[in-house]
Design a protein around this nucleic acid. Structure first.
Lengths: 190, 190
DNA sequence: GTCTATACACAGATAGAC
DNA sequence: GTCTATCTGTGTATAGAC
């Protein structure tokens, strides 16, 4: 029986799930190690400290959204409606299938007034999301309303994730995502 | 020189500020005691444990919103526009003057997937907010759209508080509150 | 009502055997 | 690469003097 090899990516995938649900401060190194069937000592062989695990976890999660969600905004041959609809479906699935809500929103609220350690990673996620939405809506909305429309959608989605977790009911997120689709065809924007 | 007397309300007011900024788990009993110039031992004379401080802090904060913000929705002699406008102004001031964003949103995101301890107190805040908005909008919006309109406003405001803290810019909250006023006079709702 | 001192658990992190 | 054992700091909470 050879020794089990755990890849850096395996560790991060597992740690993302735990950090997202329990938060950064409440998660202990023992929590992270146990989830992989490792001891603390073995875990520290792979990562030098908790901060580094968290930073790379945020980066890996942001990268997933870049590739699986935001990339849809730049695909050739899709209408703006199709792009936004596909993004909504995947976003819904992502936030409902795996508990813990939005890893990035959770982390900024938890840490913003304690330390700035993770602000760059969190900011990168929101900037990529904003850019994708701006790309989709730029042809449908007057330039002077564009930025606020995109801001509004991001606020609605993030806020609905809070309500979803409060009421333990994913319908809140579903309705917010559905509303974002209606903003593509508002008469007032043409 | 008599011994200094610290009231339960004083302790709670101070603790609310710290819990809101640092979160529940990251806040230590030493943090709470130090802020009042007390030692841990003295602090424990007033509250039997951390959980109780948090519960009463949430209750006191919710009570403040009930009296100072949500009560406006039921005041005689104000138009719906005036009610919502006054609520917006106070809400903005409350969330901007004191750092840490929304105590209730922070706490539900931090604790929802770890324990249910504070869910009743947090739920009470959101229910009171929802009820106040329903009261204001009930005369302006068709009954079949009423619930979703109120949901949307709460999601937008909470989401904008996240963006406000991410970008360290209160304009995000201001714009979300201003949008809520426009929903009172949307032609589609009449 | 506030203080010092302390008990006990667990946190993050490291050393060294296998 | 994983383990056990350990170091050090800090957490919640309590006991008892003043």
């Amino acid at each position: 029986m050879p020794l089990q090899k755990v890849s850096r990516a395996d560790i991060l995938k597992s740690s993302i799930r735990i950090f997202r649900q329990r938060g950064y401060y409440r998660t202990s190194m023992t929590d992270l190690a146990d989830a992989l069937g490792l001891t603390k000592g073995a875990f520290y062989h792979h990562f030098k400290d908790k901060k580094t695990v968290m930073k790379e976890a945020l980066q890996m999660s942001a990268s997933w959204f870049d590739r699986k969600v935001f990339a849809i905004a730049y695909q050739e041959g899709l209408s703006d409606q199709e792009k936004l609809s596909q993004i909504s479906v995947i976003t819904y699935k992502a936030f409902v299938d795996q508990p813990g809500g939005c890893f990035f929103a959770n982390t900024i609220l938890e840490t913003a007034h304690v330390e700035d350690t993770f602000r760059p990673e969190i900011m990168a996620f929101f900037k990529a999301w904003e850019k994708a939405l701006l790309h989709i809506f730029s042809g449908n909305i007057a330039p002077e309303n564009l930025n606020e429309q995109v801001e509004q959608i991001m606020a609605e989605v993030e806020g609905s994730i809070i309500l979803m977790q409060l009421h333990q009911n994913p319908a809140y997120l579903k309705k917010a995502l559905d509303r974002s689709l209606t903003y593509l065809s508002l008469p007032a924007n043409h």
